[in-house]
Amino acid sequence: MATTRYCPGCGQDVPVEQALEGDYILTACTLCGLGLGLKVASAEEQRRLKGLSTPPPAIMSTTALQQAIAPGGPALARVGVVRREMAVPPIVERTAPPPERPASASTPPPAITQTQAMIAPLLITPPSAPAPIESVETLTPGDSIEADSGDGGVRAMRRVVVVEDSTFLREVTRDLLLEKKLAREVVDLPDGNTFLEDFVRSAAAGHKPDLVVLDVRMPGMDGREAALAMRAIEAGFGLKRTPILFFSGVLCDEPFKALLAELKNAKYIRKAEGGDVKELGERIVAVLERLVGDRPA
């Protein structure tokens, strides 16, 4: 079913596509690939997205289901249709609190994200199986979906580099990141060459940025080239990939979408045409929530 949804990256309503990721449906923008939603897939939706037309198999009784998957566990408020041949734990709804994550001896468990909090109540896991929260990271490869922090915002990043040849937009972005407490330090640079130099210097000193915001069109080395070179430097230095957020004045086309996939983890945001700073700020926050979820605390 063709449908549209607002994409904060593109800044407008866009056609969306749905893909099955394990037991979940990921809804993404068809233009820039930004993840726009994640929900538990029903059996019917799983069949539809797998291209199957066969009718649903036999239905397990609610009593048998309770005994099979949650012996001694909390009572189920409501049980849905479950396919017998499913290899993964069935999806059911319940009213009990989400299962607790297994405690780690060395590291405390990470805070439950908004997405995880949304999914967790919908899952029941057999005591011996891995906790469902563990699998959330694998649902959207390269498209982390997380908005962490107690107040529903994004955790402040230590260092963000903004590379933009427009002084106005560079300063606006810097102020916005600081004002919204998205970053503790923002370094703004006017071109790709200066950025790479700064990146190498900071990486060699052991404090590379948590996020790079790159304008696409810049004199000298443009944003695409700077990003490709940055990935090559990261590979040469043996560093983890730094998330990239591209600023562009045009809609994301197929070649650029392919570039985003190659540069993963990278996202795109279209600049507001009318210079609406507030609207741009809201979209930056929305895209950041999807982009930087896997950065270090």
């Binding site: 060459n193 790479l196 490709l228």
Partner: peptide
Amino acid sequence: GPLDGRAAAQAMRAIEKGL
């Protein structure tokens, strides 16, 4: 490709300056 010779050379110079 995908990074052309000019961009690669500029990246090399940036690495040298950075280090």
